[in-house]
Design a protein around this nucleic acid. Structure first.
Lengths: 133, 133
DNA sequence: GATGTGATGTAATGACATTACATTGCGAAA
DNA sequence: TTTCGCAATGTAATGTCATTACATCACATC
């Protein structure tokens, strides 16, 4: 079994490349600036590519930052519920998945007849490296 | 012992009032529009009031909506970690706190030497009432 | 009365995202 | 092969969210 992503278009590859090279989240407009030399001119070119990459699970959106980051585990199937730990000093993002958290939030939803579509968990703080500084 | 909030200024009271009357999240600009008749003219008047209300724990910011909501439990002390369940149909927001979730995220932070400052958990979906619709 | 501080008023700008519409490239149906 | 349809793309304009900069006011303290 392989996780077959649909072939990426040129624009999608460029955006994914920019996010992968950057070791941290980028805003759509920052991506746009990085891709000017590749012919990008307008925000929509970035947002359209991001939409597909998000659907494919290759990129995540960080709601508390209004920014985007390349998935740390692009080979795996889309995980269930991902938590992001974001360092406010260096910008690094750690991505992990806790089954107990997922189970507890799922239980609340069940108990309340709530149908969850998308769950965001983001921890803002300071990573070990920066604390050691 | 009582949780004494500093007295609210006129602008802060107006903003809190608008959020309390609205039974759901409001954007800063929506609040501004609602308070035109009370003399509000500029976004900053709203954002300044929101800042204090957020600090006091009387209002929450929903990151995935870029909007604000009056706290459902304004009498209690500031809770630890609050999860928001947001209905995409009716806009209603449920607010709850799960100690196990808090414990698990805290454990991850400890394990990784990460110092959490602020954690966001938001579940977007459809509430029971709207599903019954 | 002079001074300092926190709240307020106003304008301008910056940052993030979407709508609207024209065009292009390419595969399938005729 | 031509035509049709559709997805991707290009471009401009606009909408939405948030902050910076600076002037003013209210009021307590000295």
């Amino acid at each position: 079994m392989t996780t077959t992503h649909p072939e990426l278009t040129r624009n999608q590859s460029l955006v994914l490349g920019a996010l992968t090279r950057a070791e941290g989240p980028l805003s759509a407009y920052t991506i746009l600036d990085k891709l000017r030399d590749d012919g990008f001119r307008a925000p929509l070119q970035v947002y359209r590519a991001l939409e597909k990459l998000l659907d494919a699970g290759l990129v995540h959106r960080l709601e508390s930052l209004n920014a985007f980051v390349a998935c740390a585990h692009p080979h795996c199937h889309t995980q269930g519920l991902i938590t992001f730990a974001i360092c406010e000093d260096c910008g690094q993002v750690d991505e992990f998945s806790d089954p107990v958290v997922q189970e507890r939030l799922g239980a609340w939803s069940s108990d309340h007849g709530f149908k969850a579509e998308k769950t965001t968990i983001e921890i803002r703080g300071h990573c070990a490296a920066c604390l050691a500084g």
